[in-house]
Amino acid sequence: MEDEGEPLAPRDITGAAMSDAPPIHIDGLVKRFGHTVALDGLDLSVSRGEVHGFLGPNGAGKSTTIRVLLGLMRADAGRVELFGADPWRDAVPLHRRLAYVPGDVTLWPGLSGGQCIDVLARAHGGIDETRRDALIARFALDPAKRSRDYSKGNRQKVSLIAALAADVDLLILDEPTSGLDPLMMEAFQSCVRERQAAGCTVLLSSHILAEVEALADRVSIIRAGRTVTSGSLADLRRHTRTRVRAVTERPPEGLDRPGVGDLAVGAADGGRVDVRLSADADAVPAVVAALERAGIHTLTVTPPSLDEVFLHTYADGGAPAGDAGDAGDGA
């Protein structure tokens, strides 16, 4: 991370210490709202330069986690570090290095979109003006319209433009595309990839799985305030089954083996055999080999979508997800 040499006072967060530390490191984070436990020992680790998908159902505690990371809320227990520093104590110097897009953007109703971007830029201490203008064009935002006349998507764009135009090391995006149309989502994705190529780390909270799938290197899935699973998308996919459908010349043999399930063999047109099954990632090579021996006519192998990973993870968890309740999402 380039240190622009600006003072990181008041506390001693030296450039070196901060560069070496991972952008985000959370260990056993607990946050309570009265009697409600919103975060119950949450872990999250994001390494430099990655786009990290942060997934979870409504009320799981995504926004609360992000607010703790931003120093807007205080952790009740656990270790929370942003670039190796305490996000509550060192909020101001840390915020020079990050930009944030909330899930529900509220702007100043009397100001135009362009003015709002400038206000946010000023608050941030300056943004890249060229990029600002390019982003306004790219997101097709009318900057001269008053923000009270904007739709939700357009308010979201204002916040996205201000964040993406800032020269920062970390982008924290809380469901940033809610309200954007598919075309704009496309624009958003390419912008995020560009920021990543420029060395920026991204925490992307979302429940739009296609978006996470398109952008994220690694994901963490949380549920009722705890991290359920974390890893690369490939890792996660290994835990769910690949669906295989084939039409073979002869009945296949050797499919009744560990790692294979839902096996259904039936008749197909022309005396061929219709085979359907699901297989663990480890068993896929053996299954394909067995089908090959039976003479493949057609073969479809569908890797598990993130939706399936997601549903699988949620369904397997412990208590119902509603526990973290409104506090996690609304506070």
């Binding site: 931003l70 909330p102 529900d104 953007v105 509220t106 946010l120």
Partner: peptide, 15 residues
């Protein structure tokens, strides 16, 4: 209450 401070306090602006 409106949520505008959240955006600003995520900038280098002290609480």
């Amino acid at each position: 209450e409106a949520g505008r401070l959240e955006l600003l306090l995520a900038s280098p602006i002290s609480r």
